[in-house]
């Protein structure tokens, strides 16, 4: 499908959008925690997909990982440009807004995710479970919410270098585990 998009196939692009936009929107929202910004970022992601599809073949990633990586990078760029992170996330004017917990990543994969769970997925989840809760939580916060080392240091009340050393150890443990 991405090859068709690279060839300028608008129908394929539309189909890709329909199949993936809710997931990528969730990624943007998870990081940005702001609806209008997530929506704007989502648009940028698909502009990039359209423009970058020709280069996709050489990057070696699976299609969904490629899309997620673009979405995550764009959202984090925007988050870093913003400088500060909003604490209150739910728009109080929105009477239908679900509890924030519903839009935040859950440790439990949803039914859809479970259905397509690969051996790899189970292994990553298993390996995260083998880390301590703070370690696993930090990996999730960095990946799913775009935390920086400075954010982690502020949260943990530790110097940045200490936090970095601690997280690098966690990542190496994770790697050892998934490599087994």
């Amino acid at each position: 499908m991405i090859a068709r998009i690279a060839a300028g196939d608008r129908a394929a692009f539309g189909a890709l959008y329909d199949a993936t936009s809710a997931k990528l929107h969730a990624v943007c929202l998870s990081i940005l925690k702001d609806r209008p910004e997530a929506e704007e970022t989502l648009q940028e992601v698909y502009l990039r997909v359209w423009q970058g599809a020709a280069r996709y073949a050489v990057n070696g990633l699976s299609p969904m990982t490629w899309l997620i990586t673009i979405a995550r990078n764009r959202a984090i760029d925007r988050l870093r440009a913003r400088g500060s992170r909003p604490i209150a996330v739910v728009n109080s004017r929105d009477p239908l807004a679900p509890d924030l917990a519903e839009t935040l990543p859950s440790a439990e994969p949803g039914p859809e995710a479970a259905a397509i769970a690969s051996q790899q997925r189970r292994m990553l989840a298993d390996c995260l479970a083998q880390l301590s809760d703070p370690q696993a939580g930090a990996v999730r916060a960095v990946y799913l919410e775009g935390w920086s080392y400075a954010d982690l240091a502020a949260r943990e009340g530790m110097p940045i270098n200490t936090v970095r050393s601690w997280l690098r150890r966690s990542l190496l443990r994770l790697k050892d585990c998934v490599d087994q």
Binding site: S21, A22, K23, H25, A26, V27, L29, S30, A38, E39, L42, M64, I68, A71, R72, E102, T103, P105, S106, E108, P109, G110, E112, A113, I116, S118, Q120, R121, L124, A125, R140, Y143, L144
Partner: peptide, 11 residues
């Protein structure tokens, strides 16, 4: 895989 486990949110 962590991103895939997020609940989809329609834009």
């Amino acid at each position: 895989e962590l991103a895939l486990a997020l609940t989809p949110v329609m834009a």
